[in-house]
């Protein structure tokens, strides 16, 4: 309940009009959205029960490691309702395969569709999406961990919430199935980060400072 209550409202894209080149404009719009999503995610993470009980060092490590996974849960969640094969980055930023391809995001499109289809088939609920986002952060396998006991408690609390929720729906296998989707989520996030790093080098897309900082931790 707490995760749902604090789940941030979806952001809208601010369409970039600084260039006539549509693929560049798409990338700039996407990066701006990503930066704002990241800010909101950090604010949200602080409200996840147990997060503030972690040391500041661990809070930073978890976010630096798991931010893209958490954000992609949102993209996959928003995209699962679409009839077409669009990725819904925001209500007003829906990209199909051709648009992604022309923006240099073909590999990202493919990876994100794979993830989206997986969640689409499971009919992910809002509760599950919120839980997965929190679990992705908590489970980001940072090394070294400053305070392992607090991290373990944080993870256990989220796990327990997920089990309770699925038990209330009398869905015996769903919690396990969701957790089994985490490797694909990580793989997809890795692709997304690689794509961003590549775009930054190739096109010299100006990235916001926070986004650069988070990418820097991944590079």
């Amino acid at each position: 309940s707490h995760l749902l209550l604090t789940d941030p409202a979806p952001l809208a894209a601010n369409h970039d009009d600084s260039t006539n080149e549509s693929s560049l404009s798409t990338l700039l719009t996407l990066c701006d959205l990503l930066n704002r999503e990241l800010l909101v995610l950090i604010g949200w993470a602080k409200q996840i029960p147990g997060f503030s009980g972690l040391s500041l060092v661990d809070q930073m490590s978890l976010l630096q490691s798991g931010w893209m996974e958490a954000l992609l849960v949102g993209v996959a969640w928003r995209s699962q309702g679409t009839l077409g094969e669009e990725l819904v980055f925001a209500g007003n930023l829906r990209l199909d395969e051709a648009q992604c391809r022309s923006a240099g995001l073909a590999d990202l499109y493919e990876a994100l569709r794979h993830l989206t289809i997986k969640y689409q088939m499971m009919r992910l609920s809002p509760e599950e999406a919120a839980a997965l986002k929190a679990v992705a952060l908590a489970n980001s396998d940072v090394d070294p961990v400053d305070c392992p006991d607090s991290l373990q408690r944080f993870q256990d609390g989220l796990h327990e919430a997920l089990l309770d929720y699925e038990a209330s729906r009398r869905e015996q296998h769903r919690a396990g199935r969701l957790l089994m989707s985490l490797p694909l989520l990580r793989q997809t996030a890795h692709r997304a980060v690689q794509t961003l790093l590549r775009l930054q080098h190739q096109h010299r897309i100006p990235l916001h400072k926070l986004l650069l900082e988070m990418l820097d931790a991944k590079a």
Partner: peptide, 15 residues
């Protein structure tokens, strides 16, 4: 963690 000033600040802000 010196390099990650913005994240550090965001986490330390209470709101």
């Amino acid at each position: 963690k010196e390099k990650h000033k913005i994240l550090h600040q965001l986490l330390q802000n209470s709101t």
